[in-house]
């Protein structure tokens, strides 16, 4: 998550200019395509997959069947994609967890990210915001860090479980800010929000889309955002990096990617990559994603590969820190 944001559109243009001919099967796609999603219908990753696959089906001229196989934080969706025998017609969209932290957190994962997964394209990213109750004594990040630094566990934060994006981000933040906060795990962001509003806990990291309504209603306030640039969904929220003693490269983002099983025909991957890049360049699609709190991304398969490797390293270090504490 430290890689600087790249010119996604440039990458998209480059790929579509040199769209390679399909080596094996000129007629691909000759049948309906299956896209596995490791989350239930109606969840945010599912809706995102549908936003992308709807125009993709039109481009490919074949229907795309979304296969919801929820479970184990998205891991089951990937396992099912790998189990399907139908190479070149079976793909998946997934959040970052199953590709980056799952090998550390999930025993019997059943796949090796480097060997079994062929990256296609990064679909979208979402920063997180640091949220406190509207009547929290401090109004900015420096005040928050000062309050948290008074004594270990002076402040608490909520997450959606061990190893979740919210947990890891908060631990990365504590590490960089030099404070110790008390971790209170919940099962959903809605619960975390309620607990902050009800003053049970002090703070939490969450997607801007989950927090904005409560900010408008005067129940929560946002102290900063974890992206490197301001985010359209959270207008006026200051970037945390470089502030209040945080390093300038501080950055934490959730993301969502389109992947294929390893061994998928290179031509198929190139076609999908250029088609999805073109879809993500469409302003209507960008707006639909943004409404759900996602920033359209794009880029080459290699860039996605690099992002997986970088994030695995960063979050691995954070997990080491968490394990050392307990």
């Amino acid at each position: 998550m430290i890689i600087s944001r790249r010119a996604a559109l440039l990458g998209a243009a480059a790929v579509s200019l040199c769209k390679p001919a399909l080596a094996q099967d000129a007629a691909w796609p000759s049948q309906p395509q299956h896209v596995f999603v490791g989350f239930p219908a109606g969840s945010s990753p599912d809706l995102l997959a549908r936003i992308v696959t709807e125009p993709l089906a039109a481009k490919l001229g074949q229907p795309i069947v979304i296969e919801n196989k929820p479970g184990a934080g998205g891991v089951i969706g990937i396992q099912q994609m790998l189990n399907a025998k139908d190479r070149d017609n079976t793909f998946a969209t997934t959040i970052n967890g199953p590709l980056t932290t799952a090998p550390r957190l999930t025993p019997n994962l059943g796949y090796d990210v480097a060997k079994d997964i062929a990256p296609v394209v990064l679909i979208a990213t979402s920063p997180l915001v640091l949220v406190v109750a509207a009547d929290f004594p401090a109004d900015d990040l420096a005040g928050f860090i000062a309050a948290a630094g008074k004594e270990p566990e002076a402040l608490s934060y909520g997450s959606v479980g061990k190893g979740s994006g919210a947990h890891l981000t908060a631990e990365l933040f504590s590490d960089r800010a030099g404070v110790e906060m008390l971790h209170i795990p919940f099962t959903s962001y809605a619960e975390v929000t309620t607990a902050i509003i009800g003053h049970e806990i002090d703070s939490g990291f969450m997607a801007p889309s989950a927090a904005m309504q409560y900010v408008k209603a005067g129940k929560l306030k946002i102290l900063g955002i974890t992206s490197q640039k301001p985010f359209a969904q959270a207008p006026g929220v200051p970037v945390m990096a470089g502030q209040a003693g945080l390093p300038a490269d501080f950055r934490a983002e959730l993301w969502n990617a389109f992947i294929a099983p390893a061994g998928t025909d290179a031509g198929v991957i190139a076609t999908l990559n250029s088609d999805i890049n073109a879809i993500l360049a469409d302003e209507a699609v960008q707006k639909r994603l943004l409404d759900m709190g996602w920033q359209a991304a794009g880029g080459t398969p290699e860039e996605l590969q690099q992002r997986i490797a970088d994030d695995t390293k960063i979050w691995g270090a954070v997990l080491d820190r968490i394990d050392a504490k307990n």
Partner: peptide, 20 residues
């Protein structure tokens, strides 16, 4: 299933399907 607090897999006996 997965213990929310610790992330430990309880009584799943290695079955991913039991994680939830």
């Amino acid at each position: 299933g997965t213990d929310v607090n610790s992330g430990v897999q309880r009584f799943t006996f290695g079955q991913t399907e039991l994680m939830d």
